[in-house]
Amino acid sequence: MNLISKELLQAKNEPLNYFNKNSLIIIGIVVLGLFLYPFISPSKFALHLLMMIFMHAVMSQSWNVLAGFSGQISLGHAIFFGIGAYASGYFYTKFQITPWFGIIIGIAISAFIALLIGVPMLRLKGHYFAIATLLIGISFQVIFQRWPEVGASAGLYVPINRDSPWLSMQFHKNKVAYYYITLVFFIITFFLVWLLNRSKLGYRLKAIRDQSEAASSLGIHVSKYKVIAFIISAMIMAPMGSIYAQYVLIIDPNNTFSADISILVLLISVMGGVGNIWGPIIGSSILIPISEFSRIYFGGTGRSIDLIIYGILIILICIFRPSGIVSLIPRSFREREKVK
């Protein structure tokens, strides 16, 4: 035959997905390092900082799955963080159900709420969707502030249990356990999102994000997949709420259903790079240390110096690097380096 079919043959022999050996090795070393870290230098602050970075990376990844894969911009993602926190906290406080199971309950309730919110919101596009999520997010806060069963504005105090740390998911002597729990969730989440990115579902969602009309002309039921993306996103967020609740042991509407959390996950994702699975890690590694360090140097809430820096950084990113910090990393280290 002719030359063209040779090229076709070659194309068919290419692997479905490229793996960059170098980046795989780097990821492997980093993961190993993170697992060994508590043995090397178990400074309380460093562990806390890393834990916050992992947690916020997962929370932002949840937001990123929605925006980056299906193009819907949520300004109310704290809803699912709050549901996660309240689910595990409430069932442990009232019925002594282990928070491990509470996490699963939180995921299930979040998925259900995402379905309830997602379906009627399908008609809303662009700003209407974004503002609706903002208002729904605040509504959750208002409702929980006034709901006596969950402690209203005082919130829930998770009863202290020193006898069975693993069952109660409370580690009073040594915070290292929290570190490993978040690390494991962090790795699992990123692995699942990485798989999603390469799955049939991922192809369909990205098609909807880029051009929803073209997607529906190619047999994709756009509304159904948008709701699916919303549900997946919610399910990623919920466990972080549960873990956070077990870490601080106080759950109130202001530290869980807070608009600040909704905005923070958006800022982290945009900072790192929306639609890129590394974006949330990068964004979280930059922004979270800023707030943790400013808390040390300026005390208390840091007199909101961290927020001033956040705000300015984000504006600069929007103006100069709308595709996020990840776009500064040379392409060869990202994906598909064999191309061109």
Partner: peptide, 23 residues
């Protein structure tokens, strides 16, 4: 209306997924 941020191959795979179950 191409999927601008995806490669040509990825664009066409989206179409192919209508009938094919295996990626």
């Amino acid at each position: 209306k191409p999927f601008a941020d995806q490669t040509l191959l990825e664009n066409v795979i989206v179409g192919a997924l209508v009938k094919e179950k295996n990626l």
